[in-house]
């Protein structure tokens, strides 16, 4: 899965900046996408392209249970968020709803991947290739259940053993 990186060198990017509370009444996915990241980066909507990735620090998506957050990012074109760590509800919403991949990375990848870099994520080998810089990094493997839900295409398509 190839795409370009939009980087926010910031920890604790919370659901209130990913999709501010005033928009929670909205359930039209395209309209939610038009307000994605509004609280942190008002230029996000104009610069994001289909297939892009977000790169951020630790505890991405902390705060509310609003599924609007992964929905707004996913319908903006974001296919994966790479972060040092994720808050739990954002993480499971992203996976169970099959909106985007939450990829846990290490400090090395976080420091070395820059805004605009083209990267290639291979979840079968847990490898991230930086095509722009000709580097590669390891991602943290998904736990067994998360891997299976992702492979199934979301919780509703997953058949427990």
């Amino acid at each position: 899965m190839k795409g370009n990186v939009i980087k926010y060198e910031k920890d604790n990017i919370d659901t209130d900046v990913i999709i501010p509370g005033q928009y929670l009444k909205i359930h039209d996915y395209a309209e939610l996408a038009s307000h994605a990241m509004e609280g942190l980066d008002p230029s996000f909507h104009s610069k994001v392209k289909e297939g892009d990735f977000i790169l951020a620090g630790k505890n991405f998506g902390c705060g509310s249970s609003r599924e609007h957050a992964p929905i707004a990012l996913s319908h903006s074109g974001i296919k994966a968020v790479l972060a040092l760590s994720f808050a739990r509800i954002f993480y499971r919403n992203a996976v169970d709803g099959a909106f985007l991949l939450p990829i846990e990375i290490d400090e090395n990848a976080y420091q070395n991947i820059s805004e605009g870099d083209e990267i290639d994520i291979d979840i079968s080998s847990n490898q991230i290739k930086n095509i722009t810089k000709n580097q590669s990094y390891q991602m943290k493997p998904f736990s067994e259940i998360i891997g299976k839900i992702i492979e199934s295409g979301g919780l509703f398509k997953y058949k427990p053993d």
């Binding site: 209130d16 501010p20 509370g21």
Partner: peptide, 30 residues
């Protein structure tokens, strides 16, 4: 509390609140 309606904050306003979160824009203007 979640910046939804009824008493949200304007730009540069400062509030003391018995609520639970104070992220940017949580109770109104970013």
């Amino acid at each position: 509390c979640c910046g939804a309606h009824m008493g949200v904050l304007a730009k540069d306003e400062i509030c003391i609140s018995t609520t639970n979160r104070n992220f940017p824009g949580r109770m109104g203007h970013v």
